[in-house]
Design a protein around this nucleic acid. Structure first.
Length: 475
RNA sequence: GGCCUCAUCGUCUAACGGCUAGGACGAGUCCUUCUCAAGGAUUAAAUCGGAGUUCGAUUCUCCGUGAGGUCACCA
């Protein structure tokens, strides 16, 4: 499956520092990481900062933070160095120049003599003729010697059909229209992505190039560079796109794809994100869906990556996050929930109640904002008439509330637990015409809400004194 | 538009060419319940269309349709 099975697997994630990493493209990093970890290989982080115009200050740190949060640790990278340092392309310009010289010597690269305006004219002409624009049709016969002030172009010699193999997609092919004289080095001295990533992948010994399917159509160009340099290309692992929630478009920043770190802020578990992201476009077979990180590494298999795009689903992510929360030790759940609460609300007894109403830690803040926890800290104000259960007469409601007070007063304060309260009240409630005529006024007296947790858990949390005081007030 | 690619419930997906096309999310119903949530049970829901190969096609081939990607001194 990996081709040369004896080779050591080396994968990389090579983002450009143009802002945050969104969930639509972090999955490539995840798959590259899984592949390296599964094979005890190397995972490299490389920064492709060859476009100075689009560069955003601080994004390298932000990207590293995103990867760290997800637990995608790298073995070589800008911060930790490694055998092939530096890992930032702008610091490797000499290397690209060296490779460019090799191509020039071989007669496979030449200086582009045209101005941008001239090229634009060619392009317009092609558009008018409804033909695709191909620079090679205007290739200069006697290009000047390249002095570094003009773009350097690759010279495609042989026009032919390109056929190659992709581990995910199988055999792929493209006609000769896909081959053109593209730019290797820009007039500002920086290499293009097309050239730099190949040089680096060769230098760093990358064995598996994991990337999104937007690169399929430029693969013939990449292959012609490998061929020109006399280097065997790496294995290509092309991943399907992730589509936005609403439409069918690829998930991108423009379509509201969120920063990976936004999910950290919202209180998702990194393991749940990793699980969700892995399964968006991959399935090992079988019916198990909740996987730990270690299990994912074990079952990850390149041949089981999907080819069609998958739509992002917050619902499924939320469900999976809840499943991962359930996997956590009790103390950790308590710690995380308490952290979300303001100091005056940090009551350990609230934890089980909160837990069953959230799918991620951030939901706790929403509960607070909606005022759902207020009733545990302050006696509620409410419309008295709502104490009545259906058509039960007021006298009966009053009697039942008095009955409840009597029962609860008899309960020992040390045994004022949800279970004991429930047993005590239910025994009495069962003897009435309907349980509601007791349970409803009690719950309403305690909560003041049409919809709330059951009276037993409320009583156990606010304690015996407060419970009885609220019931008396109701009467 | 040229080139490349993809197509199973609403969504994520499973199914050596062979059981009644399976699971999960979401939705509905029921149980548990005074209400909400949680939990349990359960129902509905799909092989894009048309030819061909075959005893037999979700699976292989062709055509059509739909969708996505790509055609930069961006990566």
């Amino acid at each position: 499956m990996l081709g040369k099975t004896t080779e050591k697997v080396v994968t990389r994630f090579a983002p450009s520092p143009t802002g945050f990493i969104h969930v639509g493209n972090i999955r490539t990093a995840l798959y590259a990481w899984l592949l390296a970890r599964k094979n005890n290989g190397q995972f490299i982080l490389r920064i492709e900062d060859t476009d100075k115009e689009r560069e955003v200050v601080g994004s390298i740190e932000h990207i590293q933070k995103s990867l760290k949060w997800l637990g995608l640790n790298w073995d070589q990278g800008p911060d930790i160095g490694g055998l092939y340092a530096p890992y930032i392309q702008s610091e490797r310009l000499e290397l690209y120049k060296k490779y460019a010289e090799i191509l020039i010597k071989k007669g496979l690269a030449y200086a582009d003599p045209y101005t941008e305006e001239e090229i634009e004219k060619f392009r317009q002409k092609a558009e008018l003729e409804k033909k695709p624009f191909l620079y090679r049709e205007y290739r200069p016969t006697n290009p000047p010697v390249w002095d570094g002030t003009t773009p350097l172009r690759f010279k495609i010699l042989e026009l032919r059909q390109t056929v190659w193999n992709d581990i995910v997609w199988g055999e792929l092919s493209a006609g000769s229209e896909a081959l053109d004289d593209f730019i290797l080095i820009k007039s500002d001295g920086y290499p293009t992505y097309n050239f730099a990533h190949i040089v680096d992948d060769i230098e760093m010994g990358v064995t598996h190039v994991v990337r999104g399917q937007e690169f399929i159509s430029s693969t013939p160009k990449f292959l012609s560079i490998y061929e020109a340099l006399g280097v065997t290309p790496p294995h290509f692992v092309t991943t399907p796109p992730i589509m936005g929630i609403d439409g069918k478009k690829k998930l991108g920043k423009r379509d509201g794809a969120k920063d990976v770190l936004d999910y950290e802020k919202e209180g998702y578990l990194p393991d749940a994100m990793v699980n969700y992201l892995t399964f968006l476009g991959f399935n090992p077979g079988g019916e198990k869906e909740v996987y730990t990180r270690e299990e994912l590494i074990k079952v990850f298999d390149l041949t089981k990556i999907q080819r069609s795009g998958a739509q992002w689903s917050d619902d499924k992510l939320n469900w999976l996050n809840k499943e991962h929360i359930k996997l956590l030790p009790k103390e950790e759940i308590e710690k995380n929930i308490l952290e979300q609460l303001p100091e005056n609300m940090r009551n350990l007894k609230l934890v089980p109640l909160i837990l069953e109403r959230i799918s991620k830690w951030g939901d706790v803040k929403d509960m607070i904002a909606r005022g759902e926890l207020n009733l545990f800290f302050k006696a509620p104000e409410y419309d008295k008439s709502k104490l009545i259960y259906k058509n039960t007469p007021i006298e009966k409601i009053k009697k039942n509330l008095e009955l409840a007070i009597k029962i609860l007063t008899d309960l020992d304060e040390n045994n004022f637990s949800q279970e004991n309260i429930k047993n005590a009240l239910m025994t009495v409630a069962d003897k009435l015409d309907s349980r509601g005529e007791l349970l409803h006024p009690v719950r309403f007296a305690l909560s003041g809400l049409d919809k709330s947790p059951d009276p037993f858990i409320i009583a156990s949390i606010i304690g015996k004194n407060e419970t009885i005081s609220r019931l008396q007030k109701a009467i």
